[in-house]
Every structure is written in structure tokens, then in C-alpha cells.
Amino acid sequence: MFNPLKNTNRTMTPLALFVVAIIVLLSASPVLAEYADVVLNRHAEAEGVRPVIYPHWFHRIRFRCKVCHHELGFQMKVGSNDITMAAILDGKFCGMCHNDETAWGLEHCHRCHSGLPGLKTGIRGDNKAGGPGDY
């Protein structure tokens, strides 16, 4: 009968590799961020709240690019807008819509501040427009 414990190293090797492969493949299961998910963590974690996960794809179902990138003045590069909670409360950036009129208001902190700790500001998805070496 096949008993791995009584076998030599030669037959143990495949079994050990099998176990290792399972562990490695499971721990490296794919990260499935949606294309154009944006992490904003320039200020959030330093201020003691979760990083913001901004779903760009969600917003473009409801607004054309020009609304945020022309009317609201969002620069088109991640990290180039100094978005603070004070400015938002003042009706700028997200606060232009998230005011209980156009969209739900700012009492729902955790809908935006919903990210895992330690995330870096940047755009996620298959490809990024962040500079050389992304492709």
C-alpha cells in the first residue's frame, strides 16, 4: 500500500511540492480590483480614517467625464488634486454632488473611506497611467 511516510525522498518530493504548490497558489490568489478603481490616501490614513476607494467606473455610468473634470475641476492625474475633507465640506470636489441633493451626503463616511489599511494612492485595474514601467 502507498504510504508516503515509509517511502524514500524520491517519492516524497512530489507530495511535498503538491502541498507547497497548494499553499503558494492559494496565498497568491488573484487581486481583482475593478478597472479604474482609484485609491486616495494622500490624507485619509494620516487623519485616522480608512483610505478612500473611488470607483471611477461607477461614476461614469451617472456622469460624463466633463462634469468632474471640467465643471468640478478635478485634474486627470491621480494624486494631483489636494482633496481635503475641509474642501469637500465647503462644497468643492466630491462635495459638489455629495451634499444630500445631487447625491447622498457626507454623513456616510464609510462609503468612501472603505479601503484596507496601508493602500497607496493610485489607479488600479489592469493597466495604469502612472509612468514608465507600468506595461
Binding site: L32, D37, V39, R50, W57, H108, H110, S114, G115, R124
Partner: peptide, 25 residues
């Protein structure tokens, strides 16, 4: 998809309120 996307914190109080891309699309 948000439970395993490396971005969203499942412990976040509003985790279940967020629309998922598969539903949105």
C-alpha cells in the same frame, strides 16, 4: 468581488452598501 479585491476592507461599516461592478454593469 469586493471581498477579495485587495482594496475594500470587509470590516468597513458600509462594506455591504457599496454597489459591485457586476451588478452595476
Amino acid at each position: 468581488v469586493f471581498a477579495n479585491d485587495g482594496l475594500h476592507d470587509p470590516q468597513g461599516p458600509s462594506f455591504n452598501e457599496l454597489q459591485r461592478p457586476d451588478a452595476a454593469f
